[in-house]
């Protein structure tokens, strides 16, 4: 599962992820992150079974943790299933089923946003 961590100013300089990895032994995969001097966010991927434990540890360290769900907003009316989103997504979120209908596996999404401008029908947006 993916967790979206918002890091407030007070703890921005701490090695949050490294500490949680050492304490729990869980391999945390940092998929995207943005940190500057005043605030930051980190998108991590962890085994589903470890969700509660990792969330709890992170929250103890003073960050806000949200489980990433339904990251891709898909406008089914605008979408014509042209497939322009399929090959440009680095996470392979989009695919066709056997009947060439678009399937969105959005638990893979890392919020990169590349699909948004790539859709000719403006049918995709990313939940912020």
């Amino acid at each position: 599962m993916k967790l979206f961590i918002t890091v407030p100013r007070e703890v921005i300089k701490q090695p949050l992820i490294a500490q949680v990895v050492l304490e729990t032994g869980v391999l945390i995969n940092v998929e995207r992150a943005h940190i500057d001097s005043t605030e930051g966010w980190i998108l991590i991927d962890i085994p589903d079974a470890e969700g509660d434990r990792i969330s709890a540890r992170l929250i103890e360290r003073g960050v806000d943790v949200k489980k990433l769900e339904k990251a891709v907003i898909h406008d089914e009316y605008e979408c014509v299933e042209c497939g322009a989103c399929i090959s440009i997504c680095p996470q392979e979120v989009f695919s066709y089923d056997e009947d060439y209908h678009l399937v969105i596996t959005d638990d893979r999404c890392i919020l990169c946003g590349r699909c948004v401008p790539a859709c000719p029908h403006q049918a995709l947006s990313i939940r912020q």
């Binding site: 014509v80 299933e81 060439y100 000719p120």
Partner: peptide
């Protein structure tokens, strides 16, 4: 099929026209 080989590497393909709508 979703991917095609170019110079030994499998490259992902996608259409920009809709086959489900063509059907």
């Amino acid at each position: 099929s979703g991917s095609v080989e170019i110079d030994g590497e499998m490259i992902r393909t996608s259409p920009i026209s809709s086959f489900s709508m063509a059907r």
